[in-house]
Amino acid sequence: MKEELIAYIKSELIGDDTMEMNSEDDLLTSGLIDSLAIMRFIGHIEATHEIKVAPQDMVIENFINVDAIADYIQRTKNS
């Protein structure tokens, strides 16, 4: 799942498939993704993983990096 998320971020949100990105890289502080791209990203997560991201779940702890996002998706699926 993490590879798929990284691939999506690189190609769809940043537009640079060649860049290096690890699952622990900070996505929110670095300026890599702006607030509108985040909205698109959440739409993508909801569609591909068949979950609903509740507005109150849109907190830094859940989206700071790919590790946290994968963890959040897993938790939401299991609940």
Partner: peptide
């Protein structure tokens, strides 16, 4: 902080 501008609940 930048992360808060992207995460409204935070």
């Amino acid at each position: 902080p930048d992360p808060h501008t992207k995460m409204p609940a935070s």
